[in-house]
Design a protein around this nucleic acid. Structure first.
Lengths: 153, 153
DNA sequence: CTAAATTGGTTGCCATTGCAACTATTAGCT
DNA sequence: AGCTAATAGTTGCAATGGCAACCAATTTAG
């Protein structure tokens, strides 16, 4: 008999943070491939375009708040998207620090192509759940996220 | 009335891949802080140590299979752990390509300290669920992961 | 009104990531 | 045996991430 009791070993493959990370990577890398292959766009860039599709004419800071993208990464991604003319930027009249960003015409057309693909992918993903399970899973994610946030210092 | 129908806008904050990514990042960054603050160890390094705690004397390739860590990243992490004497490595007798890796005495003692912390964190996380919800969530994760894997080419 | 603090955004720098090319060893074929 | 393919692991390199320092504009406090 081993001197170990069960608690002294960690079953990594059943450890929740690990499982979430693996699941998220799998799910995200599949979307990333779609965006990258068809539009040469990264997940980060897509997220920026996604919020701009929903909320036009917002500042970098507001994008950062909505997407959780760190501001230096955001700044560099915005530069790239500007160079590729997928977005446009002005400075706010009333506050010359604040930028005002929106999708360009090209950007909007790319956005309009990606949105249905994204929904289709999500639908395909959720096919493995019943409607009820979908609702459960969604609620549990929100619940856990809420709780995890409260654990932070 | 807008000319847009609802499908032409993507609500990023309700998009499953995005939500999973945000949740996973939150959960992982909390653990990462614990490991980093107390043991100056990264998540990647911890995962390597975790499988070695469970399966001593396995090869880098087997670690890679169990943790999903890409082999170049694994190689560099193993070098670091060797330098810090948290793990030990020999080459297999029967196959001089294959390494045989295990936790060192120091590594084992670090492992023995981290394991209960990890379980405690997981327990704290899951506090927001009833036993039933825990089981549901766990099952749904497995189900979705399985399904997502099948979507891959 | 002015000095200090705050805010929005950019940049420098270093660590991490991940693909691809490479070395060394072993396995498979004929 | 001898040649080719596959496998284990390392390394080069370019892209990405993220902290911290920084600049400029604005707000706040005295």
């Amino acid at each position: 008999m081993s001197s170990e009791n069960n608690d002294s070993i960690l079953k990594l493959e059943r450890f929740l943070p690990y499982r979430l990370s693996i699941l998220s990577n799998k799910v995200s890398s599949l979307v990333a491939d779609i965006y990258k292959d068809k539009f040469a766009i990264s997940i980060t860039e897509w997220r920026i375009m996604a919020v701009l599709g929903e909320y036009p004419d917002i500042s970098a800071d507001e994008i950062s708040a909505k997407t959780q993208i760190e501001k230096s990464i955001l700044s560099r991604s915005v530069s790239k998207l500007l160079k590729r003319k997928l977005i446009e930027r002005d400075m706010a009249e009333d506050d010359k620090r604040r930028s005002v960003i929106r999708l360009s015409t090209t950007g909007k057309s790319v956005y309009d192509e990606i949105v249905p693909l994204s929904y289709e992918y999500e639908r395909a993903l959720l096919k493995c759940f019943t409607k009820e399970e979908q609702a459960q899973f969604s609620a549990l994610i929100d619940q856990l996220y809420e709780h995890a946030s409260s654990l932070q210092i």
